[in-house]
Computed example of a mutant assay.
Amino acid sequence: MTAGEGGAAAVPYGCHAHPYPPGTLRPSGDPAVADRRVLDHYLRWKACFVRRGIGGEEGRYAVYTPDAAHPYVAEAQGYGLVITALMAGADPEARTVFDGILRHVRAHPSVNDPELHAAQQDGEGRDVGGTDSATDGDLDIAYGLLLAGRQWGGDYTGLALRRVHAVKESEVHPATRLMKLGDWSSGDWDGVSRTSDVMPGHLRAFRAATGDPFWDEALDAQLTLIGALQRYHAPDTGLLPDFVVDTLTGRPRPAPSQVLEGPHDGDYHWNACRDPWRLGADAALGGDPRSGEAARRISRWARTATGGDPDRIGCGYHLDGTRYGEGFSPAFAAPLAVAALTDEGAQGWLDALWDRLCAAPPDPARAYAAGVQLQSMLVISQNAWEP
Rank of each mutant, 00 (worst) to 15 (best):
G158I: 06
Q121F: 00
V245T: 13
L350W: 12
A334W: 12
F98P: 00
I380L: 09
A360R: 10
P22D: 14
A255R: 02
A234Q: 07
T24G: 00
Y64V: 00
Q151D: 10
R297C: 04
S299Q: 06
E124W: 02
W189R: 13
M87S: 04
G187H: 13
V97W: 01
D122T: 01
T195S: 14
G7S: 12
D91G: 05
L145A: 03
G307Q: 13
G53S: 09
I380D: 01
G348S: 13
P19V: 05
A119R: 15
G262W: 07
M87I: 11
R207N: 07
L225Q: 07
A346I: 04
P276L: 09
V38L: 12
D140E: 15
I83P: 01
G280V: 09
S381E: 06
R366E: 14
L239W: 04
R296H: 10
V111T: 13
R37T: 11
R356A: 14
A340T: 09
W277P: 00
P256N: 05
I101N: 00
R253T: 14
H264R: 14
L341I: 11
D35A: 14
G286S: 13
A118I: 01
Q222G: 05
D267W: 12
R177L: 08
A255N: 03
V38Y: 08
S110K: 02
F49T: 02
L102K: 00
P254E: 06
A370K: 06
A284E: 04
Q77W: 05
P276S: 07
I54T: 04
D188W: 04
T84F: 13
A208F: 05
L139E: 15
R126C: 00
L239F: 13
A352M: 06
M377S: 02
A208M: 11
F206A: 08
F98N: 00
E115N: 14
Q375R: 09
G211H: 12
D216F: 01
G153A: 06
T304N: 03
E57M: 07
F49I: 05
G130Y: 05
G348Y: 09
D113I: 00
E386D: 08
A85E: 08
E58Q: 10
R300N: 10
T224K: 11
G266D: 06
L219W: 12
C15H: 09
T224I: 00
R207H: 15
P387Q: 11
G238C: 09
T84E: 15
G321N: 07
P213I: 11
Q382W: 01
M87G: 02
D246L: 06
H108V: 01
D320Q: 11
P387I: 04
G262C: 08
R297F: 01
G123H: 02
G158T: 14
V50A: 13
R274I: 08
I101G: 00
D216Y: 02
L374D: 05
Y368C: 02
G123K: 01
G59V: 03
R36L: 14
G78V: 10
A255K: 03
A340V: 12
S186I: 08
E58P: 08
E57W: 12
P200G: 13
D220K: 10
H104R: 00
E58M: 02
H202S: 10
I298F: 06
P361W: 13
H41S: 07
A331K: 06
V198W: 04
G154A: 15
L260V: 15
P241F: 08
V244M: 04
L223D: 09
D288N: 11
G4R: 03
